[in-house]
């Protein structure tokens, strides 16, 4: 593969003094962007914890009414996609654009599976009137009660407070979903460049950057999954 001659970059941009410096700068830029991602989602997590503290029972009830098996499935899918992405970076660093391309295909496929599962979850929630907006909020209390594990909570379920759980559920998983979609866009961009064999052991910042982004999306899900589905 390494003999293929396409417009592979060998020279750094004019304002850097070496490829190494340019790579380090690019990576640091991505890391800083990751810090902003942490802060942005962090805001929502702050909201989650504050309302959880205020409406503890509703959160248990809300969490029980989600399908945790689907959540677990999605967790595994995302973890696997993180692995394929990490491996894609490894292959790119070795100069194996073709192998990396296959791994990016896998990653994208995982992202799409994740979105399909999310679609089924969302439509189930919307069917039971659990979407807190557009005047669609009309919770099917029988459905919720059938899902709750702790019988003592049965009588405490107040739809008004339950609503806030679903506000955060849709806001957080929704924003996370948007990130997945953006991630798919980035993957498509990578595929194009990998097909052109643009990367080399000396120039792979783009793959690494998308990788970092994808892992952050995974990390956010690592926290979302237990908070939303399990506890």
């Amino acid at each position: 593969m390494s003999t293929a001659k396409v417009d592979r970059r060998v020279e750094h941009s004019h304002h850097f003094s070496s490829m190494e410096q340019e790579h380090e700068a690019g990576k640091q830029g991505v890391w800083l962007f990751m810090a902003t991602e942490i802060m942005m989602f962090g805001g929502l997590f702050v909201g989650y914890f504050i309302y959880r503290f205020k409406f503890h029972d509703m959160y248990i009830a809300g969490g029980d009414s989600l399908d945790w098996t689907l959540g677990a499935l999605n967790t595994l899918v995302l973890l696997f996609s993180s692995f394929t992405m990490a491996q894609a970076v490894t292959e790119t660093m070795k100069g194996n654009n073709a192998k990396a391309l296959k791994l990016v295909y896998f990653t994208t496929a995982c992202a799409l599976i994740f979105m399909v599962v999310k679609y089924f979850e969302y439509s189930a929630k919307i069917d039971h009137g659990l979407f807190p907006g557009f005047d669609m909020w009309n919770p099917d209390m029988e459905y919720i009660k059938s899902k709750i594990r702790d019988v003592a909570l049965l009588n405490n379920v107040d739809p008004a407070n339950l609503r806030l759980f679903f506000v955060l559920y849709f806001a957080m998983t929704g924003l996370h979903g948007i990130h997945i979609v953006i991630g798919v866009g980035l993957m498509i961009w990578l595929m194009k460049r990998l097909k052109n064999n643009e990367f080399s052991p000396k120039y792979y910042t783009a793959v690494e950057g998308v990788g970092l982004y994808w892992h952050i999306v995974d990390i956010i899900w690592i926290f979302l999954f237990p908070l939303m589905y399990l506890i």
Binding site: G47, I50, P132, G133, N161, L164
Partner: peptide, 16 residues
């Protein structure tokens, strides 16, 4: 969407 996260009448907290 009218989600009510900051609206006290929907359980939210304006101080948040």
């Amino acid at each position: 969407f009218g989600i009510g996260i900051f609206d006290a009448s929907l359980g939210g907290d304006p101080v948040l």
